[in-house]
């Protein structure tokens, strides 16, 4: 009896996830999806999203891995505060994040004088898109990486040292390979969050084709601009991307 209840509950949630996605994907004939994707607006949004999310992921991996490592290894006072800070962007509403970025990095923001002196304009640029994406998505990676590093048997790192590998080489030959599933999983979540980012993007980077109109913004704008087919086609693309990445990662993990 209990088993039946558990199975039904699981099936309900699974169905709730699958049905809307399937409904969306099956809404248009594939031919219509393809032709909608060939519009310049669709292609621009696609390229922009790919470009910005990849850059955002690269930045997150480069800066987030050391941070995760420090949080997992170093014991210092205030570490739990830093842990909490890293988690903040997950809880803060994206529009709030966008507003914060705008008020600090915007034209009349806190850093405006410094930026102006350097001749840098951030708001309304593709750089702003990347900044918004990094802000909202990096915590997903850092949390996963930190957990991955914490789970590693320190003795293995000691063994590596006694065998003659310095700290950096130990990190790349022992720590990273052993933490790889966690790092990969975190990177996927991070990328997915960056791909779907909307609120902070439109607030800080604005909405301009080719500059800041990422896939989510394009879906939203096409929806009310009356181009439902384009909106649906772009949505299908996003679902396909996400599914492909998730499948690839799971396959990798199994190996």
């Amino acid at each position: 009896m209990i088993r039946a209840v558990v199975a039904v509950a699981a099936a309900l949630l699974l169905a709730f996830i699958i049905i809307p996605l399937a409904g969306l994907v099956l809404h248009l004939a594939p031919r219509d999806i393809v032709s909608a994707l060939q519009t310049p607006a669709a292609q621009s949004a696609l390229c922009l999203s790919l470009l910005t999310t990849v850059i955002a992921l690269a930045i997150t991996l480069t800066l987030g891995t050391p941070l995760a490592y420090i949080l997992a290894r170093a014991a210092f006072r205030g570490r739990s505060i830093v842990d909490a800070i890293v988690d903040l962007p997950i809880v803060v509403p994206p529009a709030v994040a966008g507003l914060a970025l705008l008020l600090v990095f915007g034209r009349t923001g806190t850093f405006a004088p410094v930026l102006a002196r350097l001749g840098i304009q951030l708001s309304f640029t593709t750089a702003a898109v990347v900044m918004a994406q990094v802000f909202v998505s990096s915590p997903f990676y850092v949390r996963a990486a930190r957990a991955g590093f914490l789970n590693i048997d320190r003795t293995l790192e000691s063994a590596s040292a006694t065998l003659g590998m310095g700290p950096l080489r130990t990190f790349f030959f022992v720590t990273v390979p052993l933490a790889a599933p966690a790092l990969l999983g975190g990177a996927v979540l991070c990328w997915a969050r960056a791909l779907g980012e909307f609120g902070a993007t439109i607030m800080f980077a604005g909405n301009l084709l080719g500059v800041s109109q990422t896939l989510p913004l394009a879906v939203y704008l096409n929806l009310e601009g009356g181009s439902m087919p384009v909106a649906i086609a772009l949505s299908v693309i996003m679902i396909a991307f996400s599914a492909a990445v998730v499948i690839v990662v799971r396959l990798f993990e199994r190996r």
Binding site: G164, M165, G166
Partner: peptide
């Protein structure tokens, strides 16, 4: 001298073989 420059072999209690 850090451990990676000491040229001393250490066999750990649980052997610490690299699983990967």
């Amino acid at each position: 001298v850090p451990p990676y420059q000491r040229d001393i072999g250490l066999v750990f209690q649980e052997y610490a073989l690299f699983p990967h």
